[in-house]
Amino acid sequence: MLGKDYILCAIASDFEKEWSISSRDKVHQTTAITYAFLRRPKAIIIYKPGATPQELLDSHLELRQKMIRNLNIELLPLTSLEDYFEGSRKYRIEQKQRLWRKSIIFGMVEMWLFSLKSPEQKYQWFGDYARLARKQ
């Protein structure tokens, strides 16, 4: 059981076809930077400030099941620590490539636009999933 002194709770799931979901209970100061420069069309990020770890897990599992059903995708098994680190390494390489391709001017405009969003909009990034799920 987590005590009240934990720093952050983050839960992540990876799926086939490069889909992923990350659920977090705290919004970081760099959220606008992440939104402008590092977001991916198939990476869903949900922030639930103030949620308990159990509430975060419950909502993560619920959305995960919806994604599996709506996108007809399978959850990727995490079979070893080496698999986890290899996936993290690949993600960081892709992240670096996205940063190099992104226009700094366009990114700054996106950061400014992000500041105009409502808290609900800032706390949810559904990427391509929002469009694809509506078609279902």
Rank of each mutant, 00 (worst) to 15 (best):
M1C: 09
M1V: 13
G3L: 06
K4P: 13
K4D: 11
D5R: 12
Y6L: 04
I7E: 13
I7T: 15
C9G: 07
C9A: 11
C9V: 10
A10R: 11
I11K: 03
I11W: 01
A12I: 11
F15A: 04
F15H: 08
K17T: 08
I21E: 05
S23D: 02
S23R: 00
V27C: 03
V27A: 06
H28V: 12
T31M: 04
T31W: 02
T34Q: 05
Y35M: 01
F37A: 01
L38E: 15
L38N: 13
R39M: 06
R40S: 11
K42D: 10
I44S: 07
I44C: 08
I44Y: 02
I45T: 14
Y47T: 04
Y47K: 08
P49H: 06
A51C: 12
A51F: 12
A51Y: 10
T52P: 13
T52M: 01
T52V: 04
T52L: 04
P53Q: 00
P53L: 00
E55G: 15
L56E: 02
L56F: 05
L56N: 01
L57P: 11
H60S: 02
H60F: 05
H60I: 02
L61K: 11
L61P: 07
E62V: 09
R64W: 00
R64I: 00
Q65T: 12
K66P: 04
I68R: 10
N70D: 15
N70G: 09
I73E: 01
I73R: 06
E74A: 13
L75M: 13
L76D: 11
P77C: 02
P77G: 03
L78I: 14
F85S: 09
G87P: 07
R89D: 07
R89F: 14
K90H: 12
K90N: 11
K90T: 13
I93H: 05
E94V: 10
E94H: 13
K96R: 14
Q97G: 05
R98E: 05
R98Q: 10
L99Y: 10
L99N: 09
L99G: 15
R101F: 03
R101W: 02
K102C: 04
S103R: 00
S103Y: 02
I104A: 12
I104N: 02
I104T: 07
G107I: 03
G107E: 04
M108N: 11
M108T: 11
V109R: 09
E110A: 10
E110V: 00
M111V: 09
M111L: 08
M111K: 14
W112M: 09
L113N: 14
S115Q: 10
S115M: 05
K117E: 07
K117T: 04
S118N: 07
S118F: 01
P119I: 04
E120K: 10
K122P: 03
K122A: 03
K122V: 03
K122M: 01
Y123E: 12
Q124V: 13
Q124I: 08
W125I: 09
F126L: 15
F126Q: 08
Y129I: 03
Y129K: 03
A130H: 11
R131V: 12
R131I: 07
R131L: 09
